[in-house]
Design a protein around this nucleic acid. Structure first.
Lengths: 233, 233
DNA sequence: GTCTTGAAAAAGTCCTACCTTATGGGTTTC
DNA sequence: GAAACCCATAAGGTAGGACTTTTTCAAGAC
């Protein structure tokens, strides 16, 4: 996932970031840069760079005479891909997965509706390819291949929406889907109903039927909500 | 908005960040830390901190022997509040406003539906207060007061949804609404229809009518889309 | 007893100086 | 023409000292 090794300060972040997002340091905890520098065996300058990054993520606040204090969770930049990855990798994973899935259920239907209006013919073709790939890999424990096409499918929808902010959620969706296959239980072949929905969605987009695209995507995301027992009665 | 003065590196960011998000340096442009340090009259250490932050926002990439290269726009962390503010303050403002408004139109209806299920009685009361405040300030050029209640109203909806990621969009919505009042043209009193929708939405949430809350919010956001001539036929 | 004042301590902030390391690109070699 | 080799370059990292802000707390004033 993360390259991780973009400099020494990156290494520090890879350890310190997850610790904070995992709630290892309760809000208000105070860290001192020199102490951290010693602990991670880096110079103060490197430590300061790491703190600056954490600060820009609103995970911590650095104040004179006080130190580096950990901020309460509701002030974090929860849309930062790095923060999302850290949370998905740690104890906070279940909640992060739930909130992301709810986010998907809000975004993706609208994105699909827009995609039906704005998708290029190349994007329509690619979408169909992915759907066909999903069919081909939906049986016989080809989970990896299925995941690949599933991720690509949703990425195309988000990109084709023409909204830059939707497009940037592609990585997040990829992370969620891949987590479902790898991290969580998914022994059996994917639900045939889900495959069908994707195929019909590809058709709807190609047919420029925004309403159908939106509804079909809503069905897909409702399925995802149910997988996590998030009730939507 | 931004405090801006959290250290020298913050000052550098306040200048350099907007320059980049405004597209002043085309993607692939190369900057050198030493040169930047001279230009901003700061030490290399401070400059490196600033670069680290820009790097964590995926605005630039720093590589040895090459320099600090500006990344293409579609790799930026467009959900970073800082980046959003920079873009709203610069030449990119129109597009940023459009994509944010589309984002709102996806998120807020779902958030309102959830709020109708999860809002506490305090939140319901606060919502009603805001709606009443909006009525009271909807006539006689009390735009500032109206804005205050409007922002508070949407913040409560997003928070009451119970989804941390929705909640964190409160600042963004505030920025958009305040921009509409201040930056853009808004001479006249707000649309009475909008006020009515907010009042009915507060009632729907209080009545735990998720469907109505979602529909009403959809009407509100459709209005916002129309203000920006974003067609949704 | 409460309030003001001011000194001291703590921790971040910034700077300077110097050294290390990776790497892109040019040059040589086969 | 491809592969090996060099080297100038710009970032990466270290060390430490001087400065600033903010908190704390104690002494003195009212």
């Amino acid at each position: 996932m993360t390259i991780g090794g973009r400099g020494l300060h990156g290494h520090v972040l890879d350890t310190l970031g997850p610790s904070i997002t995992a709630g290892e340091y309760p809000p208000g905890s105070v860290l001192r840069t020199d102490e951290l520098a010693q602990r991670f065996e880096v110079s103060r300058s490197v430590m300061r760079e790491a703190v600056r990054v954490l600060e820009s993520m609103h995970l911590v606040e650095s104040r004179r005479r006080v130190g580096v204090t950990v901020r309460p969770k509701d002030e974090w930049n929860v849309y930062d891909p790095q923060v999302i990855r850290w949370r998905l990798a740690g104890a906070d994973r279940p909640q992060q997965l739930r909130s992301l899935t709810v986010l998907r259920s809000a975004i993706e239907p609208v994105a699909a509706g827009l995609a039906a209006r704005h998708a290029t013919s190349e994007q329509c073709a690619a979408l169909t390819d992915c759907a066909l790939g999903m069919i081909a890999t939906s049986r016989g424990h080809q989970l990896e291949g299925y995941l690949l096409h599933d991720v690509a499918f949703h990425r195309i929808i988000l990109t084709a929406s023409g909204n830059e902010m939707f497009a940037r959620l592609g990585d997040v969706v990829a992370e969620v889907l891949s987590g479902r296959t790898h991290h969580d239980v998914m022994f059996e072949d994917p639900d045939p109903a889900a495959v069908t929905l994707h195929v019909r969605l590809a058709e709807a987009v190609r047919a420029r039927d925004a309403g159908a695209a939106e509804d079909l995507t809503r069905e897909i995301t409702v399925g995802a909500l149910h997988e996590l027992d998030i009730l939507a009665p």
